[in-house]
């Protein structure tokens, strides 16, 4: 009686799906909320605190998406550039990323905003830069592991040109790990922006953000205004984290049910800062 071939590991994607659904729901609620406020402009604490918090969410969520994607792109480009330059430049670039990750980058955002007088472009750039080194480190690890794999050697033995190697073999296999590395930037962007806004050195009050609302409410001792904003912020952070974890898990699984990096798939490594 020979043992049956090992079945592909089935993983549950429940948490990731729940995170994504929650994010969509929050985004919808935040979009609809201003309409429920009689169509008036940004409203403050004298009105329904839940609606106010939902209205503030537009700023937080859209900014997290914008700066998170920018940070992810920057990080991936950083690692890609390091690998393209190779050797000494690669060591220097990735060494710089590792040193930056060890610094309290999150605090550079409120500092930069304070010193430059703020503005959305500055804030976006700062938040993206605070997330980029982490993404770069992860993406570099993944890309290096991918480049060591034998199927690329096999493709070279099959006479494939450099362009074909990159386009048909490297890129399709790099998509998942790079997306997973990039997904880390989203919860980080939301957290960093919220911290800066909470300290009063983040998104301008005209845009509105959960962090800013929580900060103002905490200073005023206004529990009624603080709770909905804090709750929505916590839920969004959870949802972003769940999505990022799911992306890591999918990357570890590899395409078409195969483990990536030749390791047994399944558990996602913890890379959360």
């Amino acid at each position: 009686m020979s043992a049956p071939p090992p079945l592909p590991t089935t993983t549950h994607h429940g948490k990731g799906a729940a995170g994504l659904a929650l994010l969509v729901a929050l985004a919808l609620a935040c979009t609809v909320a201003p309409l429920l406020n009689d169509g008036a402009g940004p409203l403050r604490a004298d009105r329904d605190p839940v609606l106010t918090a939902l209205t503030d969410g537009r700023g937080s969520l859209s900014f997290a998406l914008l700066s998170g994607l920018l940070g992810a792109g920057l990080g991936v480009a950083w690692s890609g550039l390091a690998i393209a330059l190779g050797d000494r430049a690669e060591r220097r670039l990735m060494g710089a990323a590792a040193r930056l990750v060890a610094l309290p980058l999150a605090l550079l955002v409120p500092l930069g905003v304070g010193l430059t007088g703020g503005g959305l472009p500055v804030l976006t750039a700062l938040v993206a830069l605070s997330a980029a080194p982490l993404v770069a480190g992860l993406a570099h690890q993944d890309l290096r592991a991918l480049l060591r794999r034998d199927f690329l050697t096999a493709a070279r033995a099959a006479g494939r040109s450099k362009g074909a190697l990159l386009l048909h073999h490297l890129l399709p296999n790099a998509v998942r790990p790079l997306l997973a590395a990039g997904a880390i930037a989203l919860p980080r962007a939301l957290a960093v922006e919220s911290l800066a806004s909470l300290l009063g050195l983040g998104l301008p009050s005209s845009v509105g953000s959960w962090g800013g609302a929580v900060g103002v409410a905490a200073r005023l001792g206004d529990g009624l205004a603080l709770v909905p904003a804090a709750l929505l912020l916590a839920l969004s952070l959870w949802a972003f984290h769940a999505v990022a974890d799911e992306a890591l898990r999918l990357a570890a699984e590899g395409p078409h049910g195969g483990p990536s990096n030749g390791l047994p798939g399944g558990s996602a490594p913890d890379a959360r800062p």
Partner: peptide
């Protein structure tokens, strides 16, 4: 609860 409880949010609750 980990992802739900960043330090700055708890700081705000503490301030309250």
């Amino acid at each position: 609860a980990g992802p739900l409880l960043p330090g700055f949010l708890l700081a705000a609750l503490a301030a309250l």
